[in-house]
């Protein structure tokens, strides 16, 4: 999906990966990693994005499989997913049983 994607002001992108030790999804901002997708840095310039991706790849002691993927700029200026796969990576599993279990766990 990210193959061949080139960010631009019209189609910005984010860099995302999985945390090496824990496995959860992370997003890049200012060369560091955050578990908050809304804090991800939006790249609109191809050259800057490529440099950031090189930086991401070099952080193999922290993350696995970093890639640049299309995102949308939300009304508040923060990134929103452009594809449903990325939406599920942000939200976690969508099925009812999981959602119920998570809700119950959060009330404990």
């Amino acid at each position: 999906m990210s193959k061949g994607f080139t960010p631009s002001p019209a189609t910005p992108g984010v860099i995302t990966a999985n945390d090496l030790r824990m496995g959860h999804c992370v997003w890049m901002r200012d060369g560091r990693w955050t578990a908050d997708p809304r804090a991800a840095e939006l790249f609109e310039d191809e050259a800057i994005a490529e440099l950031a991706l090189l930086d991401a790849v070099s952080q193999a002691d922290l993350v696995v499989g970093p890639y640049l993927v299309e995102a949308k700029r939300g009304a508040d200026g923060r990134p929103e997913p452009a594809h449903f796969r990325e939406a599920f990576r942000r939200s976690g599993p969508t099925h009812k049983h999981f959602q119920q279990a998570e809700a119950e766990a959060s009330h404990v």
Binding site: N18, M22, G23, R85, R89, G92
Partner: peptide, 10 residues
């Protein structure tokens, strides 16, 4: 050893 990295986790 059966360890995959999936969408949200190992």
């Amino acid at each position: 050893n059966g360890v995959y990295l999936q969408l949200h986790s190992y």
